[in-house]
Design a protein around this nucleic acid. Sequence first.
DNA 1: GGATATATTCAACCCCGCTTAACTAATCAA
DNA 2: TTGATTAGTTAAGCGGGGTTGAATATATCC
Lengths: 147, 147
Amino acid sequence: MSPTKVLTEVIREWSEIFMHRSGRDFKRFMDETSLSFSQLSVLMRLKHGGNSGVSEIGDQLGVTNAAASQAVDRLVHLGLIERTEDPEDRRAKRLALTQKGNTLIEKGVEARSKWIEGLTDALTLEQQNMIISALTLLTEAARKTKE
Amino acid sequence: MSPTKVLTEVIREWSEIFMHRSGRDFKRFMDETSLSFSQLSVLMRLKHGGNSGVSEIGDQLGVTNAAASQAVDRLVHLGLIERTEDPEDRRAKRLALTQKGNTLIEKGVEARSKWIEGLTDALTLEQQNMIISALTLLTEAARKTKE
DNA sequence: GGATATATTCAACCCCGCTTAACTAATCAA
DNA sequence: TTGATTAGTTAAGCGGGGTTGAATATATCC
């Protein structure tokens, strides 16, 4: 079997396990925070992709601006995001995570990566170093393919 | 900095990127298939954890049995799962993916791992081998920690 | 056999997030 | 300046998926 074929197979298996566990953790996170999929998507978008306006949120979520506006509004009332007028174009709003929103998302990421960290406890130092190198490679490659 | 500290950091970063992209892909998959988070959870449970009854589905989803029953019913009508009487205990039903449901989930997994496969194209053979080893280690470790 | 427990479904109701449509306000352009 | 366009909000209504509680059928226990 060619190495590329093996790599594909390995990636598939890992992705499946990762998605399965992370999906469960994500669901739990939704329940704990009482936030919907869309609401968390908005928060992660702001965390990851920087600030943006309401329409961009709607585009990303694949919903109408009205729906995006409502979602944003709920998050503002929860104190998780800030909605200020854009000084450059006073029709538009600039959205940003509040401190509270930011730490909430970081808690989520932390929770969802904790189980992987548990996996590495039993590994030798050499194996850990290999994983560091491998994930670093993947992370860098992913960063390069912008969006 | 200790290697464990670095490893934790590397895992966090990789998880964050992975979750972000996969989350987006998952959302797209939900839209394309017109299936809800819960419905896909049920399908993945059946794909992953083997067949089960309605109550177990409910437990896993964290909803009442009535809700689980309804979710199952919708999926049966969509032809994605099969609901047959359990011959051992005729009060219970045994749920299983149909061929259609199975290929649908596999399509989903494939779609969600494809972007990672794209990342590895530009890597040397040596780097690819390292990633194979690393992900294999992680996958095996994950399999060992049952559930 | 009769009482009780278990697995699932049915029925009625509720809430949330989406859509469409109408509206406000700011900007652009002739 | 005024008409068209763009960003966002608001209101009304719908549907999906949840809940509780009763109903049904089978299992289990004495």
